[in-house]
Write a protein that binds this DNA or RNA. Structure first.
Lengths: 212, 212
DNA sequence: TAGATTGTTAATCGATTAACAATC
DNA sequence: TAGATTGTTAATCGATTAACAATC
């Protein structure tokens, strides 16, 4: 899909934001945009935008700029939003509930097919369009449904054991909200960590050093 | 507090992780660590650790290494975990609830003093140790309590207006979970964005390109 | 055609890694 | 003292920015 072998992480992390901004432009009915215009809206340089996009191909037209919808769709394809990869969510606490209810998995290339918890008091309860499943049925469920992605909203203490079980079930992709640093000796593993505690501490640093 | 004028963002973003790892080492009763040992546990280079730490001062001892508790405490001070900056949370939906219940604000230099929502049906309800306050009382509350930080767990559509109100109330620090890109013409503003949608798309890219 | 704007190469800047003298 | 490991300088690497020829 990409021009060269591998794309730098810095570029990849900017793609979702391009995708989002272009989507908003399209909604506003703007059909054409130049790298300069886009750079002003996104507060980055036109050079960077052109460099980033050219990692994947020449999506623009000289003298004109970029077609908003076309470019958005191309970036969507690069991100894989058109895919339907099966995902399961572990941990139906407040955070797990928030994600299951409000994250648009379908528009992000995923299909959330099951929500698990270990708390007998909530197993069987509805959670939006899901029913909370017993973590004890994880193995049976995965063998039947073969999810590829696990969303981890479980406490740190439970994570190591759960990750091992998930690895044994051939799950290699993790959206990790637990405080546990997933660190495995598998080469083709994909982990996206969202460490909210670290994020708040980063804000705290900023708050305490905002006149530097 | 810092040796030189300003510390690079890359360094700052690693500090919370150092803080966390050192805390875990301390809990395990490990009192001394070298940059090499720490680098192996954290999967980064010893050079980088020494460079990072020396942005703030010489915390180690040649021939010995670093005292775990001492170093942790120093990094804590740099991050401002000993502060008690007042914060308010806007939006008591699933995500706001998750944060109010599970984030340890006190250990991150903050003090959560109020939770607001606009939904009349939930105003007055308890939320952990808080009572959900009416967003209409935001101005009165802030004038009396003078919070410095706002945690935004509100929908994108509401964010622009709320941010303007918060700015007028002298709030300059934002932990932003809304999909709205805060982009203001104030120089001393601090924003930590947590864009969960972007995060999932980044994972999606990884899932779809994991053999590159 | 002239003007605009891309795609791409070259220059700059910053961050990471390596090396080593200082020193505990 | 000898060994270990830091603090710090120098070298390398990668990412961003600038410049400009290609071209619509």
């Amino acid at each position: 899909m990409s021009k060269s072998g591998s794309i730098s992480n810095s570029v990849i992390r900017r793609l979702p934001r391009y995708y989002r901004f272009l989507g908003e432009l399209a909604e506003k009915g703007i059909s054409k945009i130049s790298s300069r215009e886009l750079s002003e809206r996104m507060k980055l340089t036109a050079s960077q935008i052109r460099q980033d996009l050219n990692c994947f191909g020449g999506f623009g037209q000289q003298g004109y700029g970029y077609n908003v919808i076309e470019l958005r769709d191309e970036i969507g394809k690069i991100l894989g939003v058109d895919k339907h990869r099966k995902a399961i969510l572990l941990g139906a606490g407040n955070l797990g509930t928030a994600l299951a209810m409000h994250i648009n998995f379908e528009h992000s290339g995923c299909q959330l097919i099951g929500v698990f918890d270990s708390n007998k008091k909530i197993i069987g309860n509805p959670l939006g369009k899901y029913t909370i499943l017993d973590i004890d049925s994880l193995e049976a469920f995965c063998k039947e449904n073969k999810p590829e992605i696990a969303v981890l909203c479980i406490p740190k203490s439970a994570t190591e054991e759960i990750v091992e079980r998930l690895i044994n079930l051939d799950i290699r992709c993790f959206w990790n909200f637990s405080h546990y640093d997933i660190n495995l000796n598998f080469s083709d593993i994909v982990v996206e960590n969202v460490h909210l505690g670290d994020s708040l501490l980063t804000l705290s640093y900023g708050v305490n050093n905002r006149n530097d």
